[in-house]
Design a protein around this nucleic acid. Sequence first.
DNA 1: AAATTGATGTTATATTATAACATAATTGAT
DNA 2: ATCAATTATGTTATAATATAACATCAATTT
Lengths: 152, 152
Amino acid sequence: MSNCKTHKTCINEALKKAETICNEKGVKLTKLRQTVLKLIWKSHNYVKAYDLLDELKKIDDSAKPPTIYRSLDFLIENGFIHKIQSLNAYVGCSHPQEHKECYFLICDSCQNIEECCSEQINKVVISTTGKNHFELNQVTLEISGTCQDCTN
Amino acid sequence: MSNCKTHKTCINEALKKAETICNEKGVKLTKLRQTVLKLIWKSHNYVKAYDLLDELKKIDDSAKPPTIYRSLDFLIENGFIHKIQSLNAYVGCSHPQEHKECYFLICDSCQNIEECCSEQINKVVISTTGKNHFELNQVTLEISGTCQDCTN
DNA sequence: AAATTGATGTTATATTATAACATAATTGAT
DNA sequence: ATCAATTATGTTATAATATAACATCAATTT
């Protein structure tokens, strides 16, 4: 479960940030992309692409897989959402632009995803890859388990 | 690229370890499962399920998707291979039974995968999840980039 | 206004994976 | 040794995830 008080605030902030960043970058948050972002932000839980598609179809009957996947690509590229590789699922990014490496706490029980940053983890990853003379490109760190609310 | 001298040794050791562990556990490394394990161990690179299937078909014409996926499931369950979530691909485990949490250095250039353990990473992950009161189940840590051989 | 670029619509299909049921092989109990 | 139960494999079908390719439309630039 998420610890946000009024989730509307989360959604609004996510949309506002996306708009601001798009303006800065000179890319366009079209109506479609905004709609998809909103749908993803319906909760802090992860969502599957075809579930999103079903939701989108309710709004726009003509939506098809490429409709959703293109928007997902755009939103990922610009850092507004993340793909959870171990689940083939998507989740809103709670702090776009701020972070490089993040990790995800995925609750098996309630599907909530907590996005975290840890300088400590970054450092350790960098140092251990360095030891292997490995030139780092992308880090995927996904931790599944049970969140605090679901443990009790 | 892998730094093994004679890859045959890697394969033989992997097969021997698998056999030993299966005996200990009382599960069966059937001919099919052994064949699949061998195919996966053809290199230190990751392999895709349907590529494995194509290889298997050369040996056993009747092989079909469930043939390969069942063997993959068995091999994963018993720790002989790993699934690389960010690639939907599979790779032999270089030290079955020894480790809990591992991470993978995935070379974008040569598809080699180096499987690593780091007590330091484990500790940091455990401590940072602990701070979030998150009961850890499974850690997926996949690092893509360029390996030493491909950097030069 | 024409040309270019970017976004979306649309059809088709590729890729990854599993469900469900049938048959065969192995093991365990009697 | 035989039957029953379990485990493994064979087989068909289909589900779930994702992209290619081309057409059209909209926005931007010249």
